[in-house]
Write a protein that binds this DNA or RNA. Structure first.
Lengths: 138, 138
DNA sequence: ACTAGTGTACTAGTTAACTAATACAATGTC
DNA sequence: GACATTGTATTAGTTAACTAGTACACTAGT
């Protein structure tokens, strides 16, 4: 249950990216876990610490933590803190996994682009033909 | 410049689909043009006619017409009406084209799904790694 | 028990996408 | 030139996603 060493793990934001903050946090945690920077039982920085350090709202951090709790990656305990679930493995390797996905998506974009399709057309097709139930929300 | 025969071409909506109305209109026009139901010079039903028939707002129809005007498919003239641009061909065959895109996207979804990726992950990757300038708006 | 530190809950503000209400302007016919 | 018919423009309402403000509740150490 040791707290995480801030030297080892630290959130960073790219505000210009357009990627929602809470999702940046999620991604960084998953990557850190898969690359063993964060390990089972580790305590994550408290929601307030993160909020202050990144100058964002507490609830944004909560949202990120909560979503990973739903996925079973984290376990939060009121009054104590948030911890990496024991025995969590975040797939074989989340980094490689994401890279693989990026690879496949890139191929599609390239192939489709070669045939005159725009990215927004791809996005539209995805939305229209593969609607996914709305994200669970808390 | 003959007006379109309502027996030949008629908008229909699927309100339950979740697909924005203006985009349904656009898609139906493209399909109709590519399948030669609508031909160069044809006058489309007026924005008011469509709005009344579908019980939607006039501006929603305007938006659809306007977007296709931007793409060069339609030509509108205030006080006269909206017409299919002379010499328009909407690509070799927009229907086949869309089908082709759907094919490619479906393959990706299937392949990625087989490796444990969800549609929303695909969507996320697309958004994050292939951001596209926001749609032009009028 | 108190208290500092933790997560929780509730409410609200912001933005973008989409749709609507309503008034304005151009065209063509009489 | 009046008028019916057409597209145009401006403003606003609705919803969902995202973020923030603020008060509440649990935990642990003293």
């Amino acid at each position: 249950m040791r707290p995480v060493d801030p030297q080892q793990f630290r959130f960073r934001l790219d505000l210009a990216s357009g990627v929602p903050v809470y999702r940046q946090l999620i991604d960084q945690m998953l990557i850190a876990i898969s690359s063993d920077v964060l390990r089972s039982g580790d305590q994550l920085p408290t929601v307030r610490e993160v909020a202050v350090e990144l100058s964002i709202n507490l609830n944004t951090v909560v949202r990120a933590y909560k979503e990973l709790e739903i996925r079973g990656v984290l376990k939060t305990q009121q009054g104590r803190g948030t911890f990496i679930t024991e025995g969590t493995t975040v797939k074989p390797d989340e980094v490689l996994r994401q890279r693989r996905l990026l690879q496949m998506v890139s191929e599609l974009v390239a192939r489709a682009g070669g045939e005159g399709f725009s990215v927004s057309e791809i996005r539209r097709t995805l939305q229209e033909c593969f609607p996914e139930e709305e994200q669970k929300r808390n």
